[in-house]
Amino acid sequence: MEAFLNFFETMPVWMKAGWIVFLLAFFWILEGNYSLVRFQYKKWKHARINIFLLVLVMVINTVFGVITTWLFVWLGESQFGLLYLINAPVWVELLLSILVLDLVAQYTVHYLLHKVPFMWRLHIVHHSDKHVDVTTGTRHHPFDFIIRETFALLALVIMGMPIAYYFLYRILTILFTYFSHANIALPGWLDKGLCLLFVTPNMHKFHHHYQMPWTDSNYGSIFSFWDRLFGTFVYDDTSKIKYGIDVADHRDDENIAVQLRIPFDRSVGKMQR
Rank of each mutant, 00 (worst) to 15 (best):
T10M: 10
M11I: 14
P12W: 05
W14M: 11
A17M: 13
A17C: 09
F22G: 11
L24W: 10
W28D: 13
W28E: 12
E31F: 01
G32T: 00
G32Q: 00
G32V: 02
L36R: 15
L36V: 09
R38L: 11
K43T: 11
W44E: 15
K45N: 15
I49L: 12
I49P: 06
N50S: 08
F52C: 12
F52S: 14
F52W: 10
L53N: 09
N61Q: 15
N61V: 09
I67D: 02
T69D: 15
L71D: 09
G76H: 07
Q79H: 13
F80I: 15
F80R: 12
L82E: 07
Y84N: 09
Y84H: 11
L85A: 12
W91P: 02
W91F: 11
E93R: 11
L96S: 04
L99T: 03
A105R: 06
T108H: 07
V109L: 05
L112Q: 03
P117A: 14
F118N: 08
M119D: 01
R121H: 01
H123T: 02
V125Y: 01
H126W: 02
H126S: 05
S128V: 02
D129M: 08
H131Q: 14
V132I: 11
V134Q: 02
V134T: 12
T135E: 06
G137W: 06
H140K: 12
H140L: 13
H140V: 09
H141V: 03
H141T: 00
P142A: 04
F143Y: 13
D144H: 02
F145M: 08
F145E: 05
I146M: 04
I146Q: 03
I147M: 05
E149K: 13
A152P: 02
L154N: 07
L154V: 15
L156K: 08
I158D: 03
M159Y: 04
P162I: 10
F167M: 14
L168R: 01
R170L: 13
L172V: 14
T173K: 11
T173Y: 10
I174N: 10
I174L: 10
F176L: 09
T177N: 13
Y178T: 10
F179C: 06
F179V: 10
F179N: 07
S180Y: 07
S180K: 10
S180V: 12
W189Y: 15
D191H: 04
D191G: 07
G193E: 02
C195D: 14
C195H: 14
L196E: 13
L196F: 14
L197D: 05
L197C: 08
F198E: 01
V199N: 06
V199S: 10
N202K: 15
N202I: 13
N202V: 15
H208P: 06
P213S: 02
W214F: 13
T215E: 04
S217D: 01
G220H: 09
S221C: 12
I222N: 11
F225V: 03
L229K: 11
L229V: 12
F230Y: 07
G231K: 02
G231N: 06
T232C: 08
V234I: 15
S239E: 10
S239M: 03
K240N: 13
I241K: 02
I241R: 01
Y243G: 06
D252G: 05
N255W: 00
I256A: 12
L260A: 04
F264T: 01
D265H: 02
D265V: 00
R266G: 05
S267N: 10
V268G: 00
V268M: 03
K270Q: 13
